[in-house]
């Protein structure tokens, strides 16, 4: 047995999982802080938040929710495929996840684009003249929180890219799945945050 172990190949799946979770905790508290800011401002400006939320398109939000939920399933399934030694299936599932992430971003691009066309963006003259303080706060939080979330989508796609490359060249396989598992954990975190962003911004009127 000792002849197959290379001492330079240090691999500690438990350790890398704990590391990923500790990072996820910091992310949860980062967004948690923003959720608290949102709820306090909502409490202080109830009518303005009510009014501003009606500007957002629930259908687009719902479509993006469905996309993210499906992508969460496909990346979870790709871990199963890797454990079952089905390399081709693993790659296809991960590529589907990547494409779904891209579709989410494209939707977000059009959604933000329509807001910009209506003069709704941070620091716009239209908002300063036409909107109350509470509405400006709502859209400020909307752009910061969905923007930060979109940034996490992009980072998630980069991580998926690394995982894909390393599954293809064989350095991530059924006995060394940590990179794919951690990519999955990160992607589920992105999903988790959206699960709260969607009702808070799009649903609650």
């Amino acid at each position: 047995m000792s002849q197959v172990i290379h001492h330079d190949e240090h691999y500690d799946p438990e350790g890398s999982k704990i590391g990923m979770w500790l990072f996820i905790f910091t992310e949860l508290l980062l967004f948690g802080g923003l959720f608290i800011v949102y709820s306090v401002y909502r409490y202080l400006n109830q009518d303005a938040f009510h009014l501003a939320a009606e500007e957002l398109n629930t259908t687009v939000g719902a479509i993006n929710t469905v996309i993210l939920l499906i992508s969460s399933m496909t990346i979870a399934m790709s871990t199963t495929a890797l454990q079952k030694k089905q390399k081709a299936t693993t790659i296809v599932l991960l590529e589907i996840t990547f494409m779904l992430a891209l579709v989410f971003l494209i939707n977000k691009y059009f959604e933000w684009g329509i807001k910009f066309d209506h003069g709704i963006f941070p620091g716009s003259e239209y908002m300063k003249e036409e909107m109350s303080q509470g509405e400006i706060l709502f859209f400020g939080l909307y752009f910061v929180m969905t923007g930060l979330h979109a940034l996490h989508i992009i980072v998630g796609m980069v991580i998926m890219g690394f995982a894909l490359a390393r599954i293809k060249n064989g350095t991530v396989h059924e006995n060394r799945p940590s990179l794919l598992e951690n990519a999955g954990l990160y992607w589920h975190l992105v999903d988790l945050i959206w699960i709260f962003l969607f009702p808070l911004f799009y649903l609650i009127h």
Binding site: P13, T58, A62, V66, S72, M73, T80, P177, H205
Partner: peptide
């Protein structure tokens, strides 16, 4: 000693269906 629990495709699919169901319920009630 590194026993990994393999979750079936089917159970992940069931979880997705539940998540979608709860999403549509939350849209409906709001």
């Amino acid at each position: 000693n590194e026993k990994h629990h393999i979750v079936s495709y089917r159970s992940y699919f069931v979880i997705l269906l539940l998540l979608l169901l709860f999403t549509f319920i939350s849209i409906a009630i709001t």
